[in-house]
Structures are given as structure tokens and as C-alpha cells.
């Protein structure tokens, strides 16, 4: 048993693990189809190797700074593992004046152990303002929301570049992604009524293509294009994205037919009902993530660095001080000439 542990604690294995980790990291980042999860293999080898070394190598344990560094590394690995298992990462677009809807969240990543509690989030979208410098250079973002905290109270907060909200453990951060949405009212031939918003492509990224496909409640697919009377963004002046009073038309087209244009308050007849353009709003996209061990990972990493610094002070400084007293430049030149 002991000899097995000793073999597992081999420092050559550490080197092999580090090299494998580096190689797999490069492969994972360069090849589209390869998941970064392959780096778990060398990480597991390194963790076992380090555990074995901590158990069997007495001089290793005796060097406090070095010990703190390596234990810190172990904790970092542990936090990475827990993060990968518990994490959630997704995106959601929320319409100005309406509530966050968990059903609209697009999941980017979800760990095996993540218990999804998105539907407990209660958040309402208020005003959005994003400032741009000439050349469409995005500056500060201000997105006002109201949300219900764990205490049950409703909080108002402006999210932005460095301000994020934490709701039910999820971190909600404003992203650069936002755009306009057309509020439509549908009256079906059967008398049914519906109010809904169609989100147009991201703005100003796709200001040249404010076009999307929408399927009516009666099941007909139509193209909707948002067309402002004058440009709302400016390439060569400062500009602010947000609610706009710029007049606009909505071009409604069905494959093969000439488009019909409606303005605010106007309607158009479609198969199975009538649709009316009610208003123009903005939508804001958020990143929603749950990374409960991230902060601990950073703490462990800084602990490791502190250990490393202590080890340096003990191992190198005395020798460096000795060396420093004997290698004056003049002495150097003197010896060089000799």
C-alpha cells in the first residue's frame, strides 16, 4: 500500500501531469469539436499525485509556505470541480416594462448537479440607456430593474458595467446585447385577443437588418421589418440607445406577396386574424449564472500565492543576500580582466 502511494507521489508523475494538462488545454482551445472537459483527466491525476505526496513526503509537509501553496492548489482544483458540477450559465432577453420569464432563458451550460430554480426569480425591466461614443463605441450601460429579494422586499437597482444583481443565488449581469421590440395586438377571427412582443435583432449591431420572422397565433409565418423614418443611431456622433420617439413603420410581408406597412396604432389583416402595431419598446439581454464556488476559488488561489511568496522568502532570499554582497560590478570587471 505504502509503495503504491510512494509511486503515486512521484514528482515525475507531476511533471507528466503538467505537460499533459498543457497539451490538452491547447488541443481543447484550438479544436472546435473537442470539449475542455478533457483537461479533467490530467487534473485528476495531479490531485491524486498531490494527495499522495502530501501523505508520504515529510520534507514537503515541513516547508510551510510550499505546503500552503500546494494545498491552495488542491482547493482551487476542488472549487473548479464543484463549479463545473453545480454551475448554471444562460442568457435571457427581458422586455422593457415586463417581467423576467424563466421559460425564455437559453441555457449555455448547466452542471450535472445544478438544481434549476430560475422560476423563483422575480424581476421587472425598467428603463435602459446605453451611451455610445462616435464610431459606435459602447461606453456605459444603465439598465434599471426591480426585483424581489429573499426578504420579500422589492428592490430597485440600476445594473450596468460593474453592477450586477444577485437573486436567489443567481448573478444577473447586463450584457452588451439589446435591441428594439414591437408590441403587437392580435385579434383572432374567433374573437380571441393577445398582446405580445416580437424582439428584433440586436441593435445597433444589426441596425441594417431589423428583420425577423414571426408566427401568428393562427400559425402563419410572416416577416416583420422595423423601419425607422430616420436613422436612430449615429456613426459619427455621440448617441444613446434607449426608448426612442423616432417615427417608424413595420413592414409585414408574407412569402411571395408585396409587403404591407403599418404605423403605430394601425392594423393589417392576416390569415385568421388582425394584427395591430401597439408600441415600440426595447429589450435588454442578461447573463444569468450560478457559480457558488467561484469566490472560494479566487480566495484559494490567493492563499496559494501567499504560500508561494512565503516559500520564496525562505528558500531564496538568504542565498540571494549572500550572493548580493560578493558580486559588486567593480569586482566583476576586476575578475574579468584578471
Amino acid at each position: 500500500m505504502m509503495s503504491l502511494l510512494k509511486n503515486l507521489a512521484s514528482l515525475r508523475l507531476t511533471l507528466a501531469g503538467m505537460i499533459l494538462l498543457a497539451v490538452l488545454a491547447v488541443i481543447a482551445s484550438r479544436s472546435e469539436g473537442v470539449d475542455a472537459g478533457i483537461t479533467a483527466l490530467p487534473l485528476v491525476i495531479l490531485v491524486l499525485n498531490l494527495f499522495a505526496a502530501l501523505l508520504t513526503n515529510r520534507s514537503f509537509r515541513a516547508q510551510t509556505g510550499l505546503l500552503v501553496f500546494h494545498v491552495g492548489l488542491l482547493l482551487v482544483f476542488a472549487c473548479i470541480g464543484l463549479t463545473v458540477l453545480l454551475r448554471f450559465d444562460g442568457h435571457v432577453e427581458v422586455l422593457e416594462g415586463s417581467a423576467f420569464d424563466a421559460a425564455r432563458v437559453e441555457t449555455v451550460e448547466q452542471g450535472w448537479w445544478h438544481v434549476n430554480r430560475l422560476d423563483e426569480i422575480e424581476l421587472y425591466q425598467g428603463e435602459v440607456r446605453i451611451n455610445y461614443l462616435p464610431g459606435l463605441n459602447r461606453q456605459d450601460t444603465h439598465s434599471t430593474v426591480e426585483y424581489r429579494a429573499a426578504s420579500g422586499e422589492l428592490h430597485r437597482m440600476t445594473l450596468g458595467d460593474t453592477r450586477t444583481a444577485r437573486i436567489d443565488g443567481y448573478r444577473i449581469a447586463a450584457t452588451f446585447n439589446k435591441g428594439f421590440a414591437i408590441l403587437l395586438h392580435w385579434t383572432g377571427d374567433d374573437g380571441s385577443e393577445m398582446l405580445g412582443a416580437v424582439h428584433m435583432p440586436s441593435f445597433p449591431e444589426f441596425d441594417w437588418k431589423q428583420l425577423t420572422t414571426w408566427t401568428t397565433p393562427a400559425g402563419q409565418a410572416i416577416d416583420l421589418e422595423l423601419d425607422f423614418d430616420q436613422p436612430v443611431s449615429s456613426d459619427n456622433a455621440e448617441w444613446t440607445f434607449g426608448p426612442t420617439s423616432m417615427p417608424y413603420a413595420v413592414h409585414v410581408s408574407i412569402a411571395g406577396d408585396a409587403p404591407r406597412s403599418i404605423r403605430r396604432g394601425e392594423s393589417v389583416r392576416l390569415a385568421g386574424g388582425v394584427v395591430r402595431a401597439v408600441d415600440l419598446r426595447v429589450w435588454m439581454a442578461y447573463q444569468i449564472e450560478y457559480l457558488p464556488f467561484l469566490t472560494w476559488m479566487f480566495v484559494a488561489a490567493f492563499l496559494a500565492i501567499a504560500g508561494l511568496t512565503a516559500h520564496f522568502a525562505r528558500r531564496f532570499l538568504p542565498a540571494a543576500a549572500r550572493a548580493g554582497t560578493t558580486t559588486k560590478e567593480d569586482a566583476l570587471v576586476h575578475v574579468a580582466r584578471a
Partner: peptide, 25 residues
């Protein structure tokens, strides 16, 4: 002739390398 004290110089080099590793971290 530029490195008359190879041993001390080497020690110093490793010490610098170690500190650079700390800052890299």
C-alpha cells in the same frame, strides 16, 4: 569574461525566475 561568478549569478537568476512565477500567478 562577462560572468565571472557563475554560481552567484545562477542563484540570482533562479530567484528572479521564481519571483516572476509569483507575479505570473
Amino acid at each position: 569574461v562577462l560572468t565571472p561568478h557563475p554560481q552567484q549569478t545562477e542563484q540570482m537568476i533562479w530567484a528572479l525566475f521564481f519571483v516572476s512565477f509569483i507575479f505570473h500567478s
